[in-house]
Design a protein around this nucleic acid. Structure first.
Lengths: 384, 384
DNA sequence: TCGATTAGTTCAACGGCTGAACATAACATG
DNA sequence: CATGTTATGTTCAGCCGTTGAACTAATCGA
């Protein structure tokens, strides 16, 4: 009972958009102020919650002591294995980045053991940076591929050229071997970070992340819907135009063949090493080819998203990655296609927003996934 | 605490595929046998659970007393407002139909107050049939239209010609006015009944219901995913062939224009009043037009479902309604299209199954939705 | 300066879970 | 057929944790 109430109170403190007092928590959970006081004391002792500096009191009565997530006492690691970099981020309960390392690389058609060796080293280094600091409670791993729901096995990562790689034992044999490991798709985890950042807000949206590939995820009521195969919301290979350009996946006219970075770059006539910023600059400078490339990508994205919105009955889209950078030019065509193609547009007008989290959201999401176990059942961690 | 444990034990008893003993419940919930005994006693007294006849005991030891849902003590009503009939079903916790009334009608372009008056009367009659019987705990209403998640307002029902009808106050002014009312889409509720029937089994699937229209719903981990607008999984108006036949919705080439009952009937050259059975007979008799109609519908269904399965990463399809009746001929083309078009087919081969519940599943689902409140928190009902 | 108001704490009481012992009812075996 | 074994269900004392009321603390307003 105490177990579940500890979790209840902790979630209440963490998910509140603004700091809450003990009395607030008591009111919103239905527990007594006395009980909440006792529970908060445990959470304070465990280093999961802190008393914040009192704000200027408003109104009569004893001023409330605002509570917030503890900073720097416990942390989880988020590892991103991406196509062009490895990154490890340590996040505390406040969502603060305590340490981070990023290493560029090119992992197309790479050798899993080699890359995983590097990842293991990087994780160790970040853990070392935190020595004598926060207690580590888990490791989340974000991969650009498919992970069956609830497992830690990467089934396929086309851009890495990996198949059937077990990531659950990444830390075996290292000093961190007893860290709990969670593995999920990059887009799912990035969406999780976005959902976390929107705490208190409406949290139903389809998240689309534009990188080399185009990933996506579905969020309903704040939770990521992964389907039974773990790849729900992956819109990169929705057919936008059956007789469109070839796609890496073997089919033709996929969304990625219009809105993937390579496709946009090619359409804009840019060199293969040009970044998004170049594309943005050209588009802003009214370069016709760049404009056409970006707006074409937007239209394709709108067509693909319309089909997704129709099947999941969600009306909000969150643009991330390249699409967030290019939002100025992508948003309008996406919105236009959605207005035209979403069946429920008349009742729930589609909304197109830009992601709040723009700094490697998958790394944050991976760390959050690893923190989730602690948040669900803090008692398991306070006693141990 | 007792509240939540009562619910926990009740759910354990209800959701078990086979009758469980107090000891089983203790083992699966982690509670003590003593606690479970006490909780079960409360549930027995409240008439939510019964002791079943002991089965032939296997193995040594005192034989267990099997527990099951109580029959006929509490019930919920499920009302279906469909295009061609009104139906009310009373269901107890065992899923047993305690009373039922069905009235045929034609409610295309009907007047809401008139139809609702009939529905109110029918609900009253079924409640009357149960006089002095079970205690009624709620009313679920299934409608062939869109209901925003969490509300009781029907936003639009194209086949009824209704818009913005509040169903929450259907029973206002009647003796049943204090029944809790739940409203949802027909397909969502039918899928709920199917999920209930599959207790213990894997419960991730896309449910497709073929009637005059084609409805659908998404089920993940046993729960219906409704999206924020309540119409997730509605596949009737997915575009199957952009330049296909006209659809009632105004667009062309929708799934319904191939796989709706009217479309199949027309393609098979049958009169407008022919039922599915006629179509089945013709197809079984190798009538070329009937075969072509049914198999064409199957292919269209497969194409539409492939897009759904791809976006939600589920690999199981459950055919219901006309599609269940015609399964013999529809299944193969659906499966063939899925194998060809589902991206994850290689890892999780799509499975096409026939619904277990074939008798007005939406009525059962509506009643189950109304029972859900009781099941979630039995204490609220035992004390009152 | 003194109520009014709200936040947080203390403490006795009670409700409900736990764990161990016990009763019950089968099977197994010589 | 008596006895031992095994598993289910019940009884009961003990204890943990929540409750509710009274109390202290801290600020505002008059």
């Amino acid at each position: 009972m105490r177990r579940s109430n500890l979790g209840l109170v902790l979630r209440e403190v963490l998910s509140a958009p603004a700091p809450v007092s003990r009395a607030d928590v008591a009111a919103s959970t239905g527990l007594t102020r006395a009980t909440v006081s006792s529970l908060v004391e445990s959470l304070l002792a465990a280093g999961l919650v802190t008393e914040l500096a009192p704000v200027a009191p408003q109104g009569a009565g004893r001023p409330a002591v605002p509570l917030g997530p503890a900073r720097g006492t416990v942390a989880a690691l988020g590892l991103v294995i991406s196509v062009d970099y490895l990154g490890v981020r340590a996040l505390d309960l406040a969502g603060e980045v305590l340490a981070e390392r990023v290493e560029a690389g090119d992992f197309r058609r790479s050798d899993p053991p080699t890359v995983l060796g590097g990842a293991r080293r990087l994780v160790g280094e970040v853990a070392g940076d935190l020595a004598d600091g926060p207690r580590l409670v888990g490791l989340g791993i974000a991969v650009p591929g498919l992970v069956a729901a609830g497992t830690r096995r990467l089934r396929i990562a086309p851009n890495l050229g990996w198949r059937d790689v077990d990531l659950g034992d990444l830390l075996a044999g290292t000093p961190l071997a007893d860290l709990r490991v969670e593995v999920d798709n990059e887009a799912n985890l990035a969406a999780r970070a976005e959902s976390w950042a929107r705490k208190g807000d409406v949290r139903d949206f389809v998240y689309v992340n534009g990188e080399v590939g185009v990933g996506g995820a579905l969020v309903q009521a704040g939770a990521v819907f992964v389907g039974s195969d773990g790849g729900a919301g992956e819109i990169g290979h929705i057919t936008v135009a059956p007789d469109g350009p070839d796609c890496r996946c073997g089919a033709t006219g996929c969304l990625e063949a219009f809105a993937g970075m390579d496709a946009m770059r090619r359409a804009a006539g840019l060199p293969v090493d040009a970044g998004v910023e170049v594309l943005l600059d050209r588009a802003a400078a009214s370069d016709a080819a760049a404009r056409a490339a970006v707006e074409g990508a937007g239209r394709a994205l709108g067509i693909a998203l319309a089909s997704t919105l129709n099947t999941v009955a969600i009306h909000r889209v969150v643009l991330a990655g390249n699409f967030a950078v290019l939002a100025e030019f992508v948003r309008a065509p996406v919105a236009a296609e959605l207005r035209r193609r979403v069946l429920l547009a008349e009742w729930s007008p589609p909304e197109v927003e830009v992601a709040l989290v723009d700094d490697r959201p998958a790394a944050t999401g991976a760390a959050l996934a690893a923190l989730a176990g602690l948040i669900a059942d803090p008692a398991a961690w306070t006693t141990a």
